[in-house]
């Protein structure tokens, strides 16, 4: 589904990603872990098409297609979803109207008609219940004045609405208390299928107790330095990240 080959990316002349290789197949859950500043969030942003970063070398293939020159909205239409670490506040647009716009724009891109209003309402109701979201919350301005936990839950609600093929969750666990974490993890697990994939970007092992990864990768200084199964996450939790820096790259 996703194939990243020798990806180098920089921002304002500073190289952040220094040769990432990663392959994700349908039905898989990958966790990408690493210390602060290692390039985790950059990798997420680059896959989603953030133009703040310049790809200097390497390729990202999604379902066999090179994503170079593909705009962020087109990537979304192809089924890539990024749950933001810091969702942006947009006063004046309600959560509901935002979702309607997003869904109908994606449908338009696929040559479909707008979703009928009653169907949309039903979908919103269904998905908001899945994430235990209060109805009142949906008429509020997008992310404005939301708590950290509300923002993250709202991100997963959007994911549930858009049903992406590949979801990248960037530090979705940060700022969540244990109950919120359970709700979010439960939501993600329910959306998982053999046809879609999830990339979890996290600093801590905590989230991985709820969403079990098939593979764990450790990123350091802009490249993946170690890959393994879920046991690797436990090892990291125990030893921290320092030992990686000393170990020669395998």
């Amino acid at each position: 589904m996703l194939k990243i080959k020798d990806l180098h990316a920089s921002v304002e002349g500073k190289e952040i990603l220094t040769g990432v290789n990663l392959e994700v197949k349908p039905g898989e859950v990958h966790a990408i872990m690493g210390p602060n500043g290692s390039g985790k969030s950059t990798l997420a942003s680059v896959i989603a098409g953030n133009e703040d970063f310049e790809i200097t070398k390497g390729t990202i293939l999604f379902e066999g297609e090179d994503l170079d020159e593909v705009s962020p909205e087109e990537r979304a239409h192809k089924g890539i979803f990024l749950s933001f670490q810091y969702p942006v506040e947009i006063p004046g647009v309600s959560v509901t109207n935002f979702m309607k716009t997003a869904i109908n724009e994606s449908r338009k891109a696929r040559g479909q008609e707008d979703m009928p209003a009653n169907q949309m309402l039903k979908l919103i109701r269904e998905k908001s219940e899945l994430l235990d979201i209060d109805r009142k919350f949906l008429s509020r301005s997008l992310n404005e004045g939301f708590s950290g936990g509300e923002k993250k839950r709202n991100e997963i609600f959007q994911m549930a609405m858009l049903e992406p093929k590949m979801a990248i969750l960037d530090e979705t666990d940060s700022g969540l208390d244990i109950d919120a974490l359970r709700i979010v993890a439960n939501g993600v697990n329910k959306l998982k299928s053999k046809d879609n994939a999830v990339i979890l970007i996290t600093h801590y092992q905590r989230l991985l107790e709820y969403i079990i990864p098939d593979f764990v990768h450790v990123i350091h200084d802009g490249k993946i330095v170690k890959s393994g199964t879920k046991e690797l996450a436990l090892e990291l939790e125990e030893k921290g990240y320092d030992w990686l820096k000393k170990e020669p790259v395998a």
């Binding site: 909205e73 990024l82 942006v88």
Partner: peptide, 30 residues
Amino acid sequence: LDEDAMFYLQSRGIPRKEATGLLMYAFANN
């Protein structure tokens, strides 16, 4: 217009032109 907000909307499948309109609409609508 705020580029972070723009990327956020685009990443949800809203094309740049529509995202621009939506952001300006939100700005004025307040």
